[in-house]
Design a binder for these strands. Structure first.
Lengths: 127, 127
DNA sequence: CACAGTATGTGCAAGTTGTCAATAGTCAAA
DNA sequence: TTTGACTATTGACAACTTGCACATACTGTG
């Protein structure tokens, strides 16, 4: 019963892994509504994520004290909106996340350079 | 009930995400035993993974036709060992994986450069 | 034989992610 | 004034992934 990783359920597997740091980064620029954040995710290649996933991530981050939220006073076309604001703790989390991202990038670099090096030597043959 | 992402159960969360391409890369150098692969993972920063995870990944990849396996004839100190060998399909999978890794790296780069750029401008303040 | 080390595999609990659908407000056309 | 479209947020559940504990089995040593 092999797991079917290749099916790539839903739209994105990689995207969600970077959802949290991206949200933190967006909020680092200033408070924002969930819906706005959802739209701006596209700028970082995380477009097309299911809204539920994004809202859930925001609530989770609130649970950890990384962000706070309150209902917006202003009237808009639609139901009341929640505004999220980064906390000091969230700011630290962002810093930790960037370290994590840098490590991840080093890992990828090592992998890719090993791959390309071996490709040049072996002419792309697998033995 | 916030999920506790920060607890980082076990040794590694990031590591498993790069397990498959790393195994494919190692096998690209030639056939190998699971146990050997397990040990060599450390070279790519994936050390300390639970053996079960690695063996399971290998069996899964076999299920997808990326690798084949057979029992080693040679006697060694221990039970018979399984030898894994990359298939042509696995070779293609590796190529696809590297594309995926390159995209991921671009994504990380975008995120990190946005972070650092904003840090320089804003002097590290979050609003 | 008991035990340590090598080598692989199974099962399940716990956690994560995707999808669907519910809710709820505003606006505009028919 | 009902219908539909768009804005916003949330809850519940199924499907999937991962970690851990343990099972198995073979070899060599005291």
């Amino acid at each position: 019963m092999p797991r079917r990783r290749w099916r790539w359920r839903g739209c994105s597997r990689r995207a969600v892994r970077f959802l949290e740091p991206t949200l933190l980064l967006l909020l680092h620029h200033g408070p924002a509504h969930g819906y706005t954040l959802l739209e701006r995710l596209g700028e970082f290649g995380l477009g097309g994520l299911n809204p539920s996933v994004v809202y859930r991530a925001l609530r989770d981050m609130e649970g950890r004290g990384w962000v706070t939220s309150f209902w917006d006073d202003e009237q808009t076309q639609g139901p009341p909106r929640r505004v999220y604001r980064l906390t000091a703790l969230g700011n630290e989390a962002l810093a930790l996340w960037t370290q994590d991202l840098e490590e991840t990038r080093r890992l990828i670099d090592r992998l890719l350079s090993a791959y390309h090096r071996h490709m040049e030597e072996g002419e792309g043959e697998h033995h």
